[in-house]
Amino acid sequence: MKGAGLRVYTALYLVFLYLPIVLLPIFAFNDSTVIAFPLGGFTTGWFAELAAVEALHAAVLTSVKIAVITALVSTLLGICAARAAARYRFPGKSGILGLIMLPLVLPEIIVAVSLLVVFLQIGLPLSALTVILGHVLICTPFAIAILNPAFQSLDVSLEEAAVDLGETAWGTFRLIVLPLVMPGVISSLLIAFTISMDEFIIAFFLSGSDATLPVYLWGQFRFPQRLPVVMALGSILVLLSVLLLVLAELARRRGARRRGALDTGGFL
């Protein structure tokens, strides 16, 4: 309970949390084909090698395509759900929202196999499209969780004023509501993009021949000589996702400030 002890413990905990990420660039620049200590010399060769792998470029392209569409669709569904949850009362509300949020706790393998069964039975070929269908399902709850505070803290009287002054329902939404929740929308887009880019299990079951980046990475783990290149790729991925997260966090904070809400933080 003492302040100092707790501080030291939290610091150690952060070391535990960040240990794998800190090691990643160390091995990415390490001039040895073995991922272990002691280290060899310094090299940027593994990064150079990334440029030459065509299967990797195809996987990156597939993943980006899937992630962009997933981010747009799940954020759109998230806006509808968060708006409905914040503003309206309707029969079966908590049950409906519970079902929509369920993928947040459901093991991903359950989602993956149940979709696989359905797609195979109705004869929908496995491709980037089937991955998108699965990713939208798991990203929508995150989008709702991010958008909810934005819609909850909206002042209803602003909308009423707009309606009283002759604005249509759609006009009110576009001119009053949307600008106020925009930072939340951006944050949701970025988070959904990040989740989709990183998701493995659903893509593993549903991608067919359209391998995504994590599916490609998984294949590389089998070849020990490819691992330093994987470390280099991982370093770039971590750097990019941290960048996206910082942007998402900044957007979220700006949104909280704009609505005058107290910022207590956190995506979830």
Partner: peptide
Amino acid sequence: VTIPFWTSYLI
């Protein structure tokens, strides 16, 4: 605390 969670799970 949440940053490591968002970086590639496989890696």
